Simulated scan of single mutants.
Amino acid sequence: MNIVLIGSGNLATQLSLAMKDAGQHILQVYSRTEEHACELAEKIGCRYTADVDEIDKNADIYVISVKDDAISELAERVSKMVVKGVLVHTAGSISMDVFKGKVQHYGVLYPMQTFSKNRQVDFRPIPCFLEASDDVTLETIRQLAESVSDHVVLADSAKRKKIHLAAVLACNFTNHCYRLAEKVLQEEQIDFNLFLPLIDETAKKVSVLSPKQAQTGPMVRYDVGVMNMQIDLLNDDRTKQIYRLMADSIHEDATSTDDTCRQPKA
């Protein structure tokens, strides 16, 4: 499959490396920053450009992997040059309709993972959520997705927005909690690496227990004495507020009668 990659950020970098390893033919990389386009093109062995008007017009599929607020403008410009190719974007929260009325064949390929440019990931276990304008286009996008991932799932725009929201809560919010913990430890010059076994075990538990069943700590018991002491140890009002909100949310969930949580694995 002949592919033009539009973007050179974290996701674009890792997806392009996975596509290359899968034997896909990447014709060209476009980025508005020429240095970034050149850097990625060298990694995957293809041409590059920083001029939208120079994007190759003969690709089978154009993968737009840029910031969410740049997708619409790029879709508008690229669609004026694409005659037969499929346009897809890789965003979780942007509707497929961003392409509607611009091109005939379009869709979404959303890999749900956290990506960094310089940390290569194994794409095979990463779920990829697909949506397409028609069945023929869906088959094209599916072939590309299945070449890099073992978990390809159909999800319309409304469902994908909820998936992305859940991903933000599970990943970005969790990582920020790591950062808040790191700042507390830095005050006492304690190595954050000492917390990696705790972080690893917390992540491993939810592979066999639901998050509700895996929750422990003073908030579950609502140990007010411990919680107030910990709040007093925090040095800024924002983090104190986060602590209180999280504490109440954890306790309310732990004591609720909600039985919709995932059943533990055998």
Rank of each mutant, 00 (worst) to 15 (best):
I231C: 12
P264C: 02
L245V: 07
Q104W: 05
D134G: 06
V108Q: 03
N193Q: 14
K161G: 07
A214K: 08
G225Q: 14
Q230Y: 09
A181I: 07
A18D: 06
G101I: 00
M219T: 15
H251G: 10
N58L: 10
V83L: 14
D51E: 13
M219G: 07
S31F: 02
A91F: 02
A22L: 00
K117W: 00
L165N: 04
D200N: 13
M229G: 10
I26V: 09
E34A: 14
D259H: 13
E42W: 08
H105K: 12
L109W: 00
P127N: 05
I94W: 05
M1A: 00
I44S: 05
Q120K: 13
L130M: 06
Q143S: 12
M219Y: 11
D97Q: 13
K205V: 02
E54C: 14
R179W: 13
Y62S: 05
S116P: 12
E188W: 13
T90L: 04
L87Q: 03
T202K: 10
G7M: 02
D97F: 06
R47T: 14
Q24D: 07
L130Y: 02
Y48R: 11
G225N: 15
L17D: 02
L5H: 07
A155E: 04
I3L: 02
M81E: 14
M96S: 10
Y110N: 01
M229N: 13
Y30G: 07
I94N: 03
L130N: 01
M1R: 00
D200I: 06
L144N: 01
S157W: 04
L15M: 13
L185M: 11
H176P: 13
Q263V: 12
T114E: 09
D150N: 12
V88N: 01
K204M: 12
M219I: 07
D258G: 08
D134T: 03
Q263D: 12
P197A: 02
T239G: 10
L185D: 04
V220H: 05
R238E: 14
S95R: 10
S93Y: 08
A70T: 12
I3V: 07
S93P: 09
K80I: 06
Q189H: 15
G7N: 04
Q213I: 01
N235G: 15
Q24R: 13
V103N: 09
E35M: 13
L5K: 06
A132L: 01
C46N: 06
L87V: 00
Q230D: 10
V184L: 14
G101R: 09
L17T: 03
L27H: 03
D150W: 03
A50L: 07
F99H: 08
R32S: 06
V168E: 09
E131T: 00
G23V: 02
K67G: 11
L196P: 10
D232V: 00
G85R: 01
T260R: 15
V29L: 07
V83F: 12
I231E: 15
G7S: 00
M96R: 15
L27S: 08
V152M: 05
L154N: 11
G7I: 01
K57F: 06
L15P: 11
P125R: 06
S65N: 00
E34G: 14
P125S: 04
D232Y: 06
L11H: 08
T33F: 01
T137S: 04
Y30Q: 06
S8C: 11
S65E: 02
E34S: 14
M1G: 03
Q120E: 14
V148M: 01
D68T: 03
K183T: 09
L169A: 09
S207K: 15
A158E: 15
D135T: 08
I64S: 07
Q263L: 12
F192A: 11
